[in-house]
């Protein structure tokens, strides 16, 4: 693939566009054409096409599909239509009251203009911000499988320390997916054969030796909704994001946390990490270490160390391991100090 002249509109002439109004037609249209792709908010897709990180495509605009609702289900779950915009979800009282960690993660992501356009489904599929992935003169196993990984020996300050392999150390960029991971969300997908539901932890794939595979979706599969099960303790939860500047920046480390302390001990806990891992990282080791133990600094630190025990630092990102520990401890202490469900 040749390096495109960035920014010239000439480069986009090999793209075609059509708009569809119902889910079945959308799926049939994209499934029938190997070069076709869904276009939702476009905040990643249009950008990727312009810098030639993705091949030319026939864009099928799905923004008219009726899958943009935010609904409370009879069983207490909340269903986010795949086309619900990040900002709409963040501002929805249904979400903000039940899952503050998700509302906070959304508001702390991107900029106002992007949150207004970007869809929840698209957020799940956004590509890594690894600069080598977007640079056609660099080796990248995600972009060109087998070409190598320039980040291993390159500028890797922002890269992952958890879930990495010798083939890829790109950090997953999403904040929302980290919160959704802590919430055990389910990704609903439709294709021409029917409907599939993926537990969020099974949806995001660690790179291993196939970093080009980031999720189990096949061509033509359409994310229709993200469902969040009821979790009463999440009403007191938080998303703590640490980054190089106060706004409009990806996380160096982030922690999504829901915690319930009873009688001085951890009764329930959900924790996930962003910015440090190749996928939204559910902190199961830390959860295990915390459960039933006293809600004290010492135990919080122990749990944080457990979670990062297998972390693999590279030349420039070793600081993330200590930063992740401190951020986990700070998040745990913050929620503990608030003293439970408001």
């Amino acid at each position: 693939m040749e390096r495109g002249e960035k920014g010239t509109t000439q480069n986009m002439r090999s793209i075609s566009y059509s708009r569809v109004a119902d889910v079945a037609t959308a799926i049939a249209t994209v499934t029938a054409d190997p070069d076709a792709a869904y276009l939702a908010g476009g905040t990643t897709k249009v950008d990727m096409l312009r810098i030639y990180a993705e091949p030319s495509q026939r864009l099928v605009d799905i923004n008219d599909l009726p899958i943009n609702h935010i609904e409370l289900q009879p069983d207490g779950a909340v269903r986010l239509g795949a086309l619900a915009r990040m900002n709409d979800v963040a501002m929805s009282p249904i979400v903000a009251q039940r899952y503050p960690l998700l509302a906070e993660a959304l508001v702390l992501g991107a900029s106002a203009q992007l949150r207004n356009m970007a869809s929840m489904g698209g957020n799940m599929l956004q590509r890594t911000r690894c600069s080598y992935f977007r640079d056609h003169e660099a080796a990248c196993n995600k972009r060109v499988p087998g070409s190598g990984c320039s980040a291993l020996t390159g500028v890797n300050r922002g890269h992952a320390v958890l879930g990495t392999s010798e083939h890829c150390i790109a950090a997953h960029p999403s904040d929302a997916a980290v919160a959704l991971s802590a919430l055990d969300a389910v990704i609903h997908v439709q294709n021409r054969d029917g409907h599939h539901a993926y537990a969020i932890d099974d949806f995001f794939l660690a790179p291993e030796d196939t970093p080009e595979r980031e999720h189990p979706l096949q061509h033509g599969d359409l994310i229709t909704a993200i469902e969040i099960p009821p979790l009463p303790m999440a009403r007191d939860s938080l998303y703590l994001k640490v980054r190089d500047r106060e706004s409009y920046e990806f996380a160096l480390v982030s922690v999504a946390l829901a915690l319930r302390v009873e009688g001085g001990a951890v009764a329930e806990v959900r924790m996930a990490l962003g910015g440090v891992a190749t996928k939204p990282w559910r902190a199961r080791r830390a959860e295990h270490a915390l459960l039933g133990r006293p809600a004290t600094h010492e135990h919080f630190l122990h749990a944080a160390r457990e979670e990062t025990a297998d972390a693999v630092p590279r030349s420039m990102n070793g600081f993330k391991i200590e930063l992740a520990r401190r951020t986990m401890v700070r998040a745990l202490e913050t929620v503990t100090a608030r003293g439970g469900t408001p």
Binding site: Y17, L39, Q113, M117
Partner: peptide
């Protein structure tokens, strides 16, 4: 929104 990221058709 950022109009550079909106396809004309949209």
């Amino acid at each position: 929104v950022c109009s550079c990221l909106v396809a004309a058709g949209q």
